[in-house]
Design a binder for these strands. Structure first.
Lengths: 206, 206
DNA sequence: GAATCCTTCCCCCTAAATGGGGATTCCATC
DNA sequence: GATGGAATCCCCATTTAGGGGGAAGGATTC
């Protein structure tokens, strides 16, 4: 099944699909307003979805169809490759993201790939997705040079334990915990437990 | 350039690459221990990296090479497609992830794709990556039904402010802040500031 | 008009955290 | 064998946080 408001594109895609015996076209629609009903009636195996359509945005449509038909693979097919639209689409449940510049044979390949549990993406989109992971965790965490013991204490602090509970857990004295925490505060440039916990979690220190 | 401890695979990949005039093989090594030096001397355009190697783990090697040569694309080539190894590799800076079951023509295609700024992935890997995005934001964050004012207070708490500072900032009384925080604690099922901050940050509440 | 929730504020009291000192032992490094 | 860091513990003091209540005005909902 196919959603695209541009008649030319709709027609050429339809042609391509009916020409290939491996596919059967359920329908090609210019409007995703009632995408969910159409899907529930026509029961497609795959959906190709444009983004910029008059009545209803393709990204929203993906969201609605995805919650209703969780296992139905939806591939975005659009001219946009900005990060916002890519990630929004994926979050809403799209399983692939192709640009309209994709050559027909690649598109066919992508449809077969989805059937086999793949997730076709145009190269530039795939690269964006990959880079997302690097920015995700790699932001080189500043090293505050905490000693091993200080890290132990900080971990338990983050878990919400009090000084006393930390002392019990680590089998050391209350005053020792205090010493460690004092040192942690100096090293992290903070003054309170909450600041220490926030800094630790935000920067992924432990 | 190619790292793989299995001689058979090294040889067959090497053969494939030297047979194709579009490629030039810098070297095929069974050990990634000194990957960084090798790269700095041989200056490859792309690296293919196995994961399970005796001396040094391929994932670590990727990390080292990536920090030293930030723009050099590295493709993992391995038998493993478990989420852990996939995501670890990507975080360390790999730009592609192929399984060894990839047919030779697909592998060639992947190498060309990387050259053009793509990010080749085997279908099952791509699907994992996509699903990560859905689990990423969709995990319906438990709604603790905090009132707007309570969210204000919680935000400032997370910023490390004390009751008194929050009162000043919101221009309300100290006891009011206390009331809000008491209510927040009940709603979040916590007893201390640190627990509240940790829960807030871990679950992305504010 | 009663019930409910949000927001605001108050009191009493205890427990916990913080800041300022200082001390000891052990261990590695120079 | 001296220096320095890590880990352990101690005492002083004040501030802050937390648990237990209660109350009043306003908005919304039923």
């Amino acid at each position: 099944m196919l959603f695209d408001d541009n008649r030319h594109i709709r027609d050429s895609l339809s042609l391509m699909l009916v020409a290939d015996s491996r596919f059967k076209l359920c329908g090609a629609f210019e409007d995703a307003s009632n995408a969910v009903e159409l899907v529930s009636v026509l029961k497609p195996d795959v959906v190709l979805m444009d983004i910029d359509m008059p009545a209803k945005n393709g990204i929203e449509a993906v969201g609605e169809v995805h919650v209703a038909f969780h296992d139905l693979p939806i591939i975005m097919l659009t001219v946009f490759d900005d990060s916002d639209r890519v990630f929004q689409s994926l979050r809403k449940g799209a399983v692939g993201y192709l640009l309209k510049s994709t050559p027909p044979e690649k598109l066919i390949e992508a449809l077969m790939e989805v059937k086999d549990g793949g997730a076709p993406m145009s190269p530039s989109v795939a690269r964006k997705v990959m880079q997302h992971f690097q920015h995700d965790q790699l932001p080189e965490k500043a090293d505050y040079k905490l000693s091993p013991r200080e890290k132990d204490v900080l971990c338990l602090l983050v878990d919400g334990l009090s000084y006393k509970m930390i002392a019990d857990r680590l089998d050391i004295g209350y005053e020792t915990v205090r010493s460690h925490i004092k040192n942690i505060y100096v090293k992290l440039h903070v003054q309170t437990m909450t600041e220490a916990v926030a800094k630790t979690l935000k920067e992924g220190l432990v």
